[in-house]
Nucleic acid binder design. Structure first.
Length: 628
DNA sequence: GCCGTTTTCGGCCCGACTGTTTTCAGTCG
């Protein structure tokens, strides 16, 4: 059983327990176990076989036993019992923005609302606003939440969201009084899918900045607006959060809003052990923290309530507190800023405060980066500037838009040393791909272009290649004698996605001419799940045959995924980053590939196309020899 | 349910904003 399927058992338990208003820490334990399972590079089944389940952080005795049961029987009795205790539709309602367990349960008990459809039918009757504790606005908010849910059931893809986000960042940078602007959240971590856009800035005039932001042409509607924070909806229906912070808190806020949640919790917990309080306002030394500190906690409580308490009642208390924290703090922020500030202007200061070196945003997923940082074994991850060429490009010879000459020019503009022309073969019918005759013609044209560039003294070379289809029986779509003439051969699956692809991919790897397997799992984000394949076995064959696996940089694929990249590295398989571009403008998606490689902990030497041209051709030669 | 340089028991990150009520609960990130 794969880790994701297993993780879903625990997500479901957490969802149900949430609706049953169980102990939140217990819920979080299940949630955390699910997340840990999702980010493990090793198959949990192997770990279980070695009896090492409980060595996995977040998995203890209870969850360990449940995993064993699932692996053994494919079922979990505990979950099956749990399911009987609540109507199944309630779980899906948790996904509606603004609806939490309390509201869902209330609506269920008052009106028998069991599904999202029930809720949609109830809304026009205007009964919700008559409930105690609810009003016109609450009902309106539920309606808006439902609309947002319907519109945006799926998370958005990185490559679709990033351009809009950068456009807003650039606009904000020009606003008077704004000093620094940065993306935060999953967008900054370059996660393959994005829930919302988080933007952070510093400003001389926060009020004015917030006012300007709310008027931006990209904004359709403002959902919430305070003195430091705005929640808005873009015209594309995506949520955009803006936070305005003070310059001395920029690093702390950037770290905090970049996440992810588990990473933050670990950092803050490390802070607590050092007598520090870490929040979005900075790093603070708190006297008495880490010990009993009851007095401190009382004070904290009082502080928390300060901004909201009745002025008359708290006058006396307030006098004391103001003395303790200083007069000039903003309302409601004083509690957060309690203690002596020891850092927070930069993210480095936050990490340093807990004894860590800087950790890149792409690594902040609580996948062992904090432990690695502590032990001084953080990877020196790959950067876009390390990429020496694109190893997957299409031209007019199949379904690409540009000529060979144009593609070469685009490669030169990106300061590449080389670029692999890799058009489809004929089996991929709709692409009008290449047969043996057509590819001969293409090779001749590539030679001519290379010759012209050489004469002009341009240090750039087009490589002759192909994206050869792997047929259902594992054979390739071009004869070996043709493949032998090419500089590099990519092989990929484009049909019969229903079958198990393990043997099909393995036989392709074993062909002496195949250098790279493209988009190895066939997934299309938000469209198509990965096909059935035992990637572990394929990777093992790749290691033996020295075949590289592609990280397809196109944002709707990003295949290999970050976690699979990490696994490839562990097994010792090279990763080749290719854009699969069908238009020269698409060649810039390389940055999403590099970001995903970073998220997979890949270093320069793990990636094939960080090699110079000579090294690359040497690698091919050496690989061919070892396959013979 | 997990975990331990604060503990094998008793903690578990921390704050903003909204709506409805007037002191706080709910939700979100």
């Amino acid at each position: 059983m794969d880790n994701i399927t297993l993780a879903n058992f625990f997500h479901e338990i957490a969802d149900i327990l949430e609706l049953k208003e169980e102990n939140p820490f217990r819920i979080n334990a299940y949630r955390r176990a699910a997340q840990v399972l999702e980010s493990l590079t090793q198959n949990i089944e192997e770990i279980a076989q070695k009896g090492k389940l409980e060595e996995v952080p977040g998995i203890g005795e209870g969850i360990g036993e449940k995993i064993q049961e699932i692996l053994k029987t494919g079922r979990l009795r505990y979950l099956e019992e749990l399911r009987k205790t609540i109507p199944p539709g309630l779980i899906s309602m948790l996904a509606v923005p603004g609806l939490g367990p309390k509201t869902i349960l209330r609506l269920y008990h008052e009106f028998g609302v069991e599904t999202i459809e029930d809720l949609e039918r109830l809304l026009p009757q205007h009964k919700i606003c008559q409930l105690e504790g609810f009003g016109e606005r609450s009902e309106e908010k539920i309606k808006e939440g439902l609309e947002q849910f319907r519109r945006h059931q799926k998370r958005s893809l990185l490559g679709k969201v990033e351009p809009l986000a950068l456009e807003i960042v650039r606009t904000l940078e020009k606003v008077k009084g704004v000093n620094r602007v940065s993306l935060a959240g999953s967008l900054r971590r370059k996660k393959e899918t994005i829930g919302d856009i988080d933007i952070l800035c510093t400003s001389d005039n926060p009020k004015e900045t917030i006012a300007v932001f709310c008027q931006l042409p990209q904004i359709k509607e403002v959902k919430a607006r305070g003195t430091t924070k705005v929640v808005a909806l873009s015209k594309t229906g995506l949520e955009i959060d803006l936070r305005v912070v003070e310059p001395e808190a920029f690093g702390a806020a950037l770290h905090y809003f970049t996440g992810n949640k588990q990473h933050n919790i670990k950092i803050r917990t490390m802070g607590i052990k050092r007598g520090l309080k870490i929040n979005e306002y900075g790093v603070f030394k708190v006297e008495g923290r880490g010990k009993e500190g009851e007095e401190e906690q009382d004070k904290e409580e009082a502080e928390k309530n300060r901004g909201t308490q009745d002025e008359e009642k708290t006058k006396e208390k307030e006098g004391e507190i103001k003395e303790a924290v200083g007069e000039n703090e903003g309302e409601g922020e004083s509690a957060a800023k309690e203690g002596v500030r020891i850092g927070g202007a930069t993210e480095e200061e936050v990490f340093r405060a807990v004894g860590l070196p800087y950790i890149e945003p792409e690594l902040r997923e609580d996948r062992g980066e904090i432990e690695a940082a502590l032990e001084g074994r953080l990877p020196k991850t790959i950067n876009l500037s390390d990429i020496k060429g694109d190893l997957h490009c299409h031209t007019k010879y199949s379904d690409g838009h540009n000529t060979i000459e144009e593609v070469a020019q685009a490669g030169i503009e990106r300061e590449y040393e080389y670029l692999l022309i890799s058009d489809h073969t004929t089996t991929v019918g709709i692409t009008h791909g290449m047969d043996a005759e057509k590819i001969q013609r293409q090779m001749e044209e590539i030679e001519k272009v290379n010759q012209r560039l050489k004469e002009k003294g341009v240090r750039f070379r087009l490589l002759k290649g192909v994206e050869c289809d792997i047929k259902a029986d594992g054979s390739l779509d071009l004869p070996d004698e043709i493949l032998a003439q090419l500089d590099l051969v990519i092989a990929a699956i484009h049909s019969k996605f229903g079958m198990d692809q393990t043997e099909r991919l393995i036989s392709a790897c074993q062909n002496p001419h195949v250098d790279i397997i493209a988009h190895p799992t066939g997934r299309k984000l938000g469209e198509r799940d990965p096909y059935q394949v035992d990637l572990e076995r394929v990777m093992e064959v790749c290691r033996k045959t020295k075949t590289a696996l592609e990280l397809n940089a196109f944002w709707n694929r990003l295949d290999l995924s970050d976690i699979n990249c990490k696994r490839a590295k562990e097994i010792g398989v090279k990763v080749s980053i290719g854009t699969d571009s069908h238009h020269i403008l698409e060649m810039d998606v390389m940055r999403y590939g590099v970001a995903t490689a970073k998220r997979g902990w890949l270093e320069k030497e793990d990636v094939l196309n960080t090699c110079s041209l000579e090294e690359l051709l040497g690698w091919v030669k050496n690989r061919k020899k070892s396959k013979e």
